[in-house]
Design a protein around this nucleic acid. Structure first.
Ligand SMILES: NC(=O)c1ccc[n+]([C@@H]2O[C@H](COP(=O)([O-])OP(=O)(O)OC[C@H]3O[C@@H](n4cnc5c(N)ncnc54)[C@H](O)[C@@H]3O)[C@@H](O)[C@H]2O)c1
Ligand SMILES: NC(=O)c1ccc[n+]([C@@H]2O[C@H](COP(=O)([O-])OP(=O)(O)OC[C@H]3O[C@@H](n4cnc5c(N)ncnc54)[C@H](O)[C@@H]3O)[C@@H](O)[C@H]2O)c1
Lengths: 252, 252
DNA sequence: CCCCCTTCGTGAACGCGTGCACAAGCGGGC
DNA sequence: GCCCGCTTGTGCACGCGTTCACGAAGGGGG
C-alpha cells in the first residue's frame, strides 16, 4: 500500500514531496525487465512470476519484487505479474512510451557504430542527428543519416527537440562539446570519452568507459593468478531458466 | 608492507586478512587515476596531491586517498604522491604492466569499432583476434587485423594465450559464445550483448548495456519534467582544476 | 463453501561504499 | 636547529543497495 510512502521527516534534501524516487540501480534493472518482458510477450507469455523474471534478467527474485514495488502494486497475489500491464507500467515510469530524439557528437568509429545500432530504435531512441568537426566526415551517410557539420549542432537540437546527447569525440573535446550541448538545451548526456565532464545542476550525465571495464577484468585476472585458485568473488547465476511460453503450470 | 599477506585459513570467502581485496568500484577509479596520472606525467608533473588528483578524475579527494590506501602507503606526508611511483604501483596492482591479449567475437558495427579503438592498446590491451560467424565478414581487414572464422576461436585463444574475451554478437548468441570462450580458457569476459551470460565460478563477467544507460537518462528526463525544476539529484563536480605542470608552489 | 497452495509486497538486517574529520608525520623556511 | 604548515592515512558514521524472511491475499480444487 502506501503508494506515496510516509517519508520519515528529517530527510536532508531529497525533495520532500516527491512521489517516489527510484534509485538509479533499480531504474537500470527496470530497463532490463522491460526488455526481457518484451521478449516474453512475443513468446506468448501472459504472466510471469518474480522468480521467472529474475531468471530471465539474471538477478535475485527478491530484487525483482523490490524493484517492481517502486511502481506501486503491479502484480496479482498468487498469480504473478501480467506481462502486458507490467510492460506498460515500466514504460510509463521510464519514459519509454515516447520517442526520444538523440544527437551523437563525433562520427568516428564509435559514433558510427552507435548510429548503426538498431538496439537504440528498439528502445525508443531515435538518432536525430550525427555531427562531426571534421569536414571530410561531413556528408557521409551512416545508418541512413547524413553526418552534419558541428556548426549545425545548436540548430539541430532546437529544431528537433533533442534532450539527450551522446559524446563520442576524443577526450580532449568532451568538456567543450558538453558545454555546447547543455547551452543548446540538452538535459542528459551519455559520455563515452574517458574524461570527466562537468555540467550544471539539473543535467544528468552518465559515463561509459570501456578501457576501465577491461582494467577491472585485468585486476581480477591478476588476483586469480596470484592466489592459487579463483575464489568465489563472482557468484554469478548458475543457469538461466529457459523462456517458457506458458508461464504457469511449472508443477514446482 | 606485507606484500604477501598472511592468509588466515578458514575464512568463509571474504578473506578478512587477505593481502588486500580492493572493491570493484575502487578498482575502476584506480584505472581512472592511472590514466590521468599518465597525462600528468607527460605534462611534466612530478607530484600530485589527492586534491589535484580528485579534480582531474572528477571525484572526491577523500575518495582518492581511500582508494590509494588500498595500495599501501604510497604518498609522502606534506608533499603528495610521486606521480611516477604511483603509476607503477597502480599498474602492478591492476596488471597494467603486462600486455593482455584480447579476443573480440563478432565483427559487426561494435566489434569493428572496438578493434579500431586505439584507447585499448594505450591501456595495454592488444586485440589478438577478431572472429565472426558470417563467412562474408571473414577475411576483411579492420584495424590492421584480419577477421577470422568462428572455428578459429579455440585455436586462437590457446595459441595466443588469450585470457580476456569480448562479446560483440547479437544477444541470441551471447551465451553460446561465452561457453566457448570459457571452455577455451578465457577467464574474463566483457559482454556488450543485452543478455545475461552465466559462467562458472572463477570467471569474471562485466556487462555494458548502452540502451540501459539511455533508459536511465530517459527516466531522469521524465522526472525532471514532471517535477517543475530539476532538483539537486546530480551534484556533479562544478569545475575541474586545470592540469598544472608544476604541482607544487600553488601558493594558495 | 472452505481449505490449501502459490505468490506478492514489505519490514528489517546486513554489508558495502562514500564522505568527514582528525591525528601523525614530513618538508621547507627562518 | 626548530617550528609551522601542509598532506596523507584512517577511524567513524551515515546512507544506500541487497538479501532474507514472513504476513497477506487471491485462485483452484474438493
Ligand atoms: N572506438 C571505440 O570502440 C571506443 C570505445 C569506447 C570509448 N571510445 C571513446 O569514444 C571516443 C570516440 O572514439 P572513436 O574510436 O570513435 O574515435 P575517432 O577518432 O574514430 O572518432 C572521433 C570523431 O570525433 C570527431 N571530433 C573531434 N573533435 C570533435 C569536436 N570537437 N566536435 C565534434 N566532433 C569532433 C573527429 O572528427 C572524429 O570523427 C573517444 O573518446 C574514445 O576514447 C571509443
Ligand atoms: N552497435 C552498437 O553501437 C552497439 C552498442 C551497444 C551494444 N551493442 C550490442 O552489441 C552487439 C553487436 O552489435 P552490432 O551493432 O555490432 O551488431 P551487428 O549485427 O552489426 O554485428 C554482429 C556480428 O556478430 C556476428 N555473429 C552473429 N552470431 C555470431 C556467433 N554465434 N559467433 C560469432 N559472431 C556472430 C554477425 O555475423 C555480425 O557480424 C549486439 O548485441 C548489440 O546489442 C551494439
Amino acid at each position: 500500500m502506501a503508494r506515496r510512502a510516509p517519508r520519515p521527516a528529517g530527510a536532508t534534501l531529497p525533495a520532500p514531496g516527491g512521489p517516489r524516487r527510484i534509485p538509479d540501480a533499480a531504474v537500470a534493472r527496470l530497463g532490463t525487465y522491460h526488455r526481457v518482458l518484451t521478449d516474453a510477450l512475443a513468446a506468448g507469455s501472459c504472466t510471469v512470476s518474480s522468480e521467472q523474471l529474475a531468471g530471465l534478467a539474471g538477478v535475485n527474485a527478491s530484487q525483482v519484487r523490490k524493484d517492481l514495488s517502486y511502481l506501486g502494486p503491479t502484480g496479482t497475489l498468487g498469480v504473478g505479474y501480467d506481462v502486458e500491464h507490467l510492460l506498460g507500467r515500466i514504460g510509463v515510469e521510464l519514459g519509454l512510451t515516447r520517442h526520444w530524439p538523440v544527437v551523437i557528437v563525433g562520427a568516428g568509429n564509435l559514433g558510427r557504430a552507435l548510429a548503426n545500432y538498431r538496439g537504440l530504435a528498439a528502445r525508443g531512441f531515435v538518432v536525430a542527428g550525427l555531427v562531426d568537426a571534421d569536414p571530410t566526415k561531413v556528408g557521409r551517410t551512416v545508418g541512413g543519416l547524413a553526418v552534419e557539420p558541428l556548426e549545425a549542432l545548436e540548430g539541430l537540437i532546437a529544431e528537433r527537440r533533442v534532450r539527450i546527447g551522446v559524446i563520442a569525440t576524443p577526450a580532449s573535446a568532451a568538456q567543450e562539446v558538453a558545454d555546447r550541448l547543455v547551452a543548446a538545451g540538452v538535459r542528459a548526456i551519455l559520455n563515452f570519452a574517458p574524461a570527466p565532464v562537468g555540467v550544471p545542476p539539473g543535467v544528468s550525465v552518465r559515463k561509459v568507459d570501456l578501457a576501465l571495464e577491461l582494467q577491472v577484468l585485468s585486476y581480477h585476472q591478476v588476483r586469480a593468478t596470484t592466489r592459487t585458485r579463483g575464489d568465489g568473488t563472482h557468484p554469478r547465476r548458475a543457469a538461466a531458466p529457459a523462456l517458457r511460453p506458458d508461464p504457469r503450470g511449472a508443477g514446482r
